[in-house]
Design a binder for these strands. Sequence first.
DNA 1: CCCTCTTTTAGAATTATTCTAATTTAGTTA
DNA 2: TAACTAAATTAGAATAATTCTAAAAGAGGG
Lengths: 135, 135
Amino acid sequence: MINQTLRDMLQSHGLKATFQRLTILEYLMTHETHPTAEMIHDNLPSISLATIYNTLDKLVDVGIVIVIDTLKDDKRHYDYYGEPHYHIINSNTSEIIDADNFDVTQLFEAARQASGLNITGFHIEVYGVGPNQAK
Amino acid sequence: MINQTLRDMLQSHGLKATFQRLTILEYLMTHETHPTAEMIHDNLPSISLATIYNTLDKLVDVGIVIVIDTLKDDKRHYDYYGEPHYHIINSNTSEIIDADNFDVTQLFEAARQASGLNITGFHIEVYGVGPNQAK
DNA sequence: CCCTCTTTTAGAATTATTCTAATTTAGTTA
DNA sequence: TAACTAAATTAGAATAATTCTAAAAGAGGG
């Protein structure tokens, strides 16, 4: 299941296709659990925790993975970022929903106008509560 | 300079108006530096670091302040949130620009549709690089 | 002016993450 | 295919931002 596509994904970003990286990337692609480094380590115990941190850093650097570090557990959560999307977080349960039904074009243009920067990416979190949940 | 308005801001959110809270809140309102707890402590050394953390937690809980914890320094930065706004971050310098020229109505509606939650807030970060800066 | 609950505080404790330095490996070149 | 080299992996130690503890002080209601 560690196939050529994954190799290409890594190598096209200038990353060597090591067994550990392929395994971690595959894990992220096949799990929508927004895991922490420790959660990944629990599931892939043969890979050292240091390597899991190193690998996640690299994957974040090249944009394959993004970080969610606003949850109440004070741990970094990681999310495979195959397609641009945003996050909806239930403030009561910390459940994270991936969603992509929003066009960021206007946001990018507004940001460009406000800053003069060349816009390269975004991270959007929207918070909500369930029907019967207080804020 | 610690006035009734600040007292009201705290009390209307159910927070006692202590000297420390008034001082920290005033500091945040008059500085656009997105400081860390330690930076605030350096500027208000008579307030213990524990109280600065406690106070920031409370201010975040009630929505007066928001957290930016995506910077490379791995420290939490705090931002007075008087008016809803979003953040533009220069990926090369970590400079943070506050901006409010974007209407979140469509985003909220998209999020409501995708999740079924009652949307209560948002946090948007847009990343960019300067004209002569590489990604 | 009390009274009670909340807040503040110094310092200790925690723990997620980073660092270190020795070993192994991927990918290239001969 | 073998050899080479820069990069990656690893176990364990180290770091440091944040949280916790328990005692003292303060806010605000009655």
